[in-house]
Design a protein around this nucleic acid. Structure first.
Lengths: 156, 156
DNA sequence: CTTGAAACGAGTGCAAC
DNA sequence: GTTGCACTCGTTTCAAG
């Protein structure tokens, strides 16, 4: 089995296919086939290969959080006590649904997380009642995202 | 036309459909139909409604950056000169493909960006030759993500 | 690695409830 | 708002170039 971290060799046709599907995962394979001038079966086989190589790690429907009343996004830097191990903290953070990302970072903090809340009050509750309540969390620094102006994937 | 920021009313069936598709955008509608016990046509119509309401903002194939040799992710806080407007800086940042996200944040920085690079050397080049070169960028603070331990969408 | 054909299954629109 | 049907179209496999 191929290691997921091994480099995939992709050619120009693979790139074209990926560019279409990164924009719209449900775009029919045959439509892509017509656009780039090869057969649908060829695309299908290339996709199977890309998937097997670990380059394609799935597809997702994107939901607009604003439509669900979630309008406040924030990054929170977390300082951990020396005694608190990172994996233990992550385990607790996983239980908080508002936490969308969690990074183990260099620099001031031990952990940087991204949270999505309905409003500032909701964010305050998550901070005070959920995150600060985690054993080993000593201090946090919050940065509210007033606007997300770029959001994209790696360009290929 | 409905405003994208208006709250969508979704029921339990909508939620079930969304949970399936947020995991795998290419999951066949009829398969979902069988799982939750309604007809395929009903799901099709609900999806059209959700799309029209702005709740569904598309679908994406997820590519694994490691397979392309991109192993270094970092967050960079950017201080802007007073004279430099945020939109002008964002316009420059958009031209840098390594910049995946850009947030206008409260707190110390004017801007917080997420970048994805092949390695530390590549990151250094992006920092020194691309980001620091932008007119109005006075100082940056870089936080390398040693590991991304959580990565998910809003839970519904 | 690519193609074309064939079989299967899914997407879509519509009429009816 | 849901259903069943019918038709169209896409997906997938396979043998062969």
């Amino acid at each position: 089995m191929k290691n997921a971290t091994s480099l995939a060799k992709i050619d120009g046709i693979d790139k074209k296919i990926l560019r279409f599907l990164m924009e719209d995962a449900r775009k029919p394979v045959l439509e892509i086939a017509r656009s780039i001038g090869i057969s649908g079966a060829a695309i299908h086989q290339r996709l199977r290969k890309l998937e097997a190589s670990g380059l394609l790690s799935g597809s997702k429907f994107i939901v607009n959080p604003k439509s669900l009343g979630y309008t406040t996004m924030a990054y929170i830097g977390i300082y951990l006590d020396k005694a608190m191990s990172n994996p233990m903290a992550v385990k607790q953070l996983e239980k908080i649904p508002e936490v969308l990302e969690c990074h183990y970072t260099t620099g001031n903090w031990s952990i940087l997380i991204k949270v999505l809340c309905r409003d500032n009050e909701h964010l305050m509750q998550v901070l005070n009642k959920e995150i600060q309540a985690i054993e080993g969390v000593s201090r946090t620094e919050t940065f509210i995202s007033l606007a997300q102006q770029i959001d994209r994937q790696i360009s290929i």
